[in-house]
Design a protein around this nucleic acid. Sequence first.
DNA 1: TTTTATGCAAATTGTTTGCAGATAA
DNA 2: TTATCTGCAAACAATTTGCATAAAA
Lengths: 137, 137
Amino acid sequence: MEKLTEMLKAKELKVTPQRLAIFNILYNTNEHPSAETIYKQLQSTHPTMSLATVYKTLDTLKKAQLVQEINVGEDSFRYDATVAPHPHAICLKCNSVIDLETDVLAESAKKVQEDTGFEVISEKLYFYGYCTGCRTK
Amino acid sequence: MEKLTEMLKAKELKVTPQRLAIFNILYNTNEHPSAETIYKQLQSTHPTMSLATVYKTLDTLKKAQLVQEINVGEDSFRYDATVAPHPHAICLKCNSVIDLETDVLAESAKKVQEDTGFEVISEKLYFYGYCTGCRTK
DNA sequence: TTTTATGCAAATTGTTTGCAGATAA
DNA sequence: TTATCTGCAAACAATTTGCATAAAA
């Protein structure tokens, strides 16, 4: 991950195997795993990595704007290496979180700003329902 | 609150002072309080009410579709007696949560459904930024 | 009088923190 | 070599649970 290495250096953060491994998982999945899930996934390749390190690293990456934290209403946070704002669809049956590319966000942010005077910095849009795989019941 | 009394009876749930008090708070505010906040607010009028009861009651009301739970990315949930879907704006400075009435939700749900095949049941839209009171810095 | 709800305290879960030793620069 | 990071264990905070008592139907 050259991208991450660069970004970390730019922020005067050390490039450690743990940080690379965690970012790598997020960068190569669209599953939006939680800290716990990432930790379990790393146990085979990085058996000494602690859960605390996963949390600390996710916090570091979040502050460095390399990952975004998403909050779908579960009891834990999930993480996404795609930082550009985009909606998510959460399947109520299999709990999967799917990235969407609808562009309603920019338009509606502008509308809100005009209508209410609220200055929009970012936005999150979640759809709850059933994914294509779970629709057939 | 006749509405609540009816709804509870319809679901074979008992009408208790605690349930009335908690629903009443939510029904008469637009502050979207957390369980803790509701608990504190009730201490003067209902000094024997326990925090566990607040949690259990909110869960009951949520299941009875009388309140909705919202998750703005804080460490706790907030509650809203308006169950119809509507966007929320969260001020990053004063942490207030404001109800919005923009109607982007219905349109975009339809769009997502057509584009991706994901069957949308409900949606949540959050805007983060600065409220009119906090913009002047 | 029967069933369900409340209130207490203890348990659980996700996350954070302090600190000594390890590692990147 | 020095500043930062990791990993462990303990701490924390939000929420849940078990159970005896209390209250609604």
